[in-house]
Design a protein around this nucleic acid. Structure first.
Length: 604
RNA sequence: GCGGGUGUAGCUCAGUUGGUUAGAGCGCUGGCCUGUCACGCCAGAGGCCGCGGGUUCGAGUCCCGUCACUCGCGCCA
């Protein structure tokens, strides 16, 4: 008999009754009846109830053994009496009568209970991640992650893509995030950067003629965290292909995403391919964001012109529109029965959460003379203006409109947030649906208000639509790029682009954003040089693995799908990283610290 | 860097208009219990009310500051 186990804790069934077997695992739970003691033994695979009687020489061992200790037990598999079977457990028909046992590892009192999985403070969970990972829910998420990555890998390979490994110690890449730096001992005073993405490498692989690249790529960015953004490091399905149009990229990645989501959706509905494509400008107008949650069936609109019509007396918004601002309408469908407090709360939300001046509203109801407006500001509008505005915004009897007004950027931002808030408050978000879309036609350039200049609005290495001709002849802010995002349920899974593979167009685009030729030649030497020796047109995308797993696992926080995550301050509480190093290590690197004055941390 | 929320036992939380000795459940320790599977019953230990200052005869409670955690903004094109 194997010294640790003949079966796993999920193997034994009625057919094993009578056999002598051996199991190893963690003591999940004990139920001590004095004269009889039940031990639920747990391993990666499942749970088996073991039972021990007081006559046994090992009874005392189990009486005082703490849960989560690791034991090996041997004994006979017996049938349970019919009313003692547990239908909730795959092994619930049988139990193991313990004859011999060996304690492999005693557990001390736990900082974090495994059984029952009660909510626990996240810093404790992170510090004792190995305990947290024993819990079924997290354990399952991590296994799911591995299965999803396997599925993605298989789907990419099936489409003829080759997997590559690119350097971890490299130079700063063209992304705009802060780099993690690694000092070079052999080259004092110089630093590697960890890749923010393998962007330049994958493009260089295209120049090298490999045609179809992919990698489950680790990416490192020294930026602040969000619920859906892990600090420090994360993984992307990074892919790139040559001689491909935007549609070719979509045709490759859509079946991968749709296929993976369908494979792991467990009955949840997934958008059929091809995914809807929404132009950036339309997305900003209709949804107030470039990552719309299409589960919310609300379409916003610009209603600015109605506020400056003759006879409209609502001076606050009129002034905003006349001053070059804008008013956007966010429909709230089916709110006839909502109390006044619903609308007041939305206004309070806008002021508190969005730090907006407020959120005006009008409720529409059929009256004696047709559709009528109700609410505090309706009285400032002639009846016919209200009717036309309702028609324009697509609302009718029993609906309401919220108004987000201000400078266009502010109004759009408030519109997008209000749309989500209304959708949430009205219960319009279906958790059992994955709604995908592409956002396309991002502008190539934008106006940088801080520096009063034109700058790249997205990726400087994207190909402008219309190529050189557009750069030379069009108004810069009107030029679009072959740049696209893929969105699922309001979460941006990835940006991608058809790249600019032409040095002449590259120099021109950078020149328009105020960067001279010399700067391009030094900052992006590797790539611009490569493009001078025959580069294929190419493009790609890099969907975030962690976010895909997060959506499929149905969790709100990205740390629930990462095996050893850092906290929001980008600290690993379990490994104590980052940490100070001793002076010998610093001397070897010719580094001297110049730290800011330390904060008073006596509060903890 | 900025804004919101939270901070009372190991954990989840209650704690009245400011008023005597700060409670409950879970967990932990000890005892009892032969069919449980969220086992049950009894007893016990466990508190700088995040920290500092202020108001007050008196602060867990009110005010100011600060720290920690978290969500968001900036940032991440």
């Amino acid at each position: 008999m194997h010294i640790f186990r003949t079966h796993t804790c999920n193997d034994l069934r009625q057919s094993h009754v009578g056999q002598t077997v051996r199991l190893s695992g963690w003591v999940h739970r004990k139920r001590d009846h004095g004269g009889l003691l039940f031990v639920d033994l747990r391993d990666h695979y499942g749970l088996t109830q073991c039972v021990i009687e007081p006559e046994s020489e090992h009874f005392g061992t189990f009486e005082h053994l703490r849960v989560e200790s690791v034991v090996t037990v041997s004994g006979k598999v017996v049938d349970r009496l019919s009313d003692a079977k547990n239908s909730n457990l795959p092994t619930g028909d049988i139990e193991l009568v313990i004859e011999t046992c060996e304690v492999q590892s005693r557990a001390e009192e736990l900082p974090l209970p495994v059984f029952g999985e009660p909510d626990y403070p996240e810093d404790i969970r992170l510090k004792h991640r190995y305990l947290d990972l024993r819990r079924q829910k997290l354990h399952k998420n991590i296994i799911l992650r591995g299965q999803i990555i396997n599925s993605i890998r298989r789907r990419m390979i099936d489409q003829g893509f080759n997997e590559f490994q690119t350097p971890i110690l490299t130079a700063s890449s063209p992304e705009g995030a802060r780099d993690f730096l690694v000092p070079s001992r052999l080259n004092p005073g110089t630093f590697f950067a960890l890749p923010q993405a393998p962007q330049q490498f994958k493009q260089l692989l295209m120049v090298a003629g490999f045609d179809k690249y992919f990698q489950i790529a680790p990416c490192f960015r020294d930026e602040d965290a969000r619920a859906d953004r892990s600090p420090g490091e994360f993984y992307q399905l990074d892919m790139e292909m040559s001689f491909a149009t935007q549609d070719d990229i979509f045709a490759v990645i859509e079946p991968v995403m749709a296929g993976v989501f369908e494979e792991f959706a467990e009955g949840r509905d997934v958008t059929q391919t091809p995914f809807p494509r929404i132009a950036y400008r339309d997305a900003m107008l209709k949804y107030g964001t470039d990552k719309p949650d299409l589960r919310i069936d609300i379409i916003c609109s610009d209603v600015s012109p109605f506020f400056v019509e003759d006879g409209v007396e609502f001076k606050a918004f009129k002034g905003i529109v006349e001053g070059g601002g804008t008013v956007r309408a966010v429909p709230a469908p089916g709110t006839k029965d909502k109390p006044r407090s619903f609308f007041d709360k939305m206004n309070g939300w806008a002021q508190k959460e969005m730090q907006a001046p407020g959120l005006g509203y009008i409720r529409f109801e059929d009256g004696e003379n047709g559709l009528e407006g109700k609410g505090p500001i309706a009285k400032f509008f002639p009846a016919d203006v209200l009717v036309r505005m309702a028609a324009h915004a697509g609302v009718g009897d029993g609906d309401a409109l919220f108004f987000a007004a201000g400078k266009e950027t502010d109004a759009v931002k408030l519109t997008g947030a209000a749309r989500t808030e209304v959708g949430t408050q009205l219960g319009m978000i279906d958790d059992n649906v994955f709604k995908f879309c592409w956002i396309v036609d991002f502008p190539m350039f934008e106006w940088d208000e801080d520096n009063k200049k034109i700058d790249f609005s997205h990726n400087p290495f994207s190909m402008p639509q219309g190529a050189m001709e557009a750069l030379e002849n069009m108004e810069p802010l009107d030029i679009l790029a072959y740049q696209y995002d893929i969105i699922c349920n309001g979460i941006e899974l990835s940006s991608g682009a058809i790249r600019n593979h032409r040095p002449d167009i590259m120099y021109k685009a950078f020149e328009m954003a105020g960067y001279d030729r010399a700067m391009v030649d030094t900052e992006f030497a590797g790539m611009i040089n490569a493009f001078k020796y025959g580069a294929p047109p190419h493009g790609g995308i890099a969907p975030g693995i962690d976010r895909i797993v997060m959506l499929l696992a149905g969790v709100e926080n990205i740390r629930e799908v990462i095996v050893f995550p850092m906290n929001q301050q980008a600290q690993d509480l379990m490994m104590n990283a980052p940490a100070a190093v001793d002076s010998k290590q610093l001397r070897e690197l010719h580094l001297r610290l110049d730290l800011p004055k330390e904060k008073d941390k006596s509060g903890s």
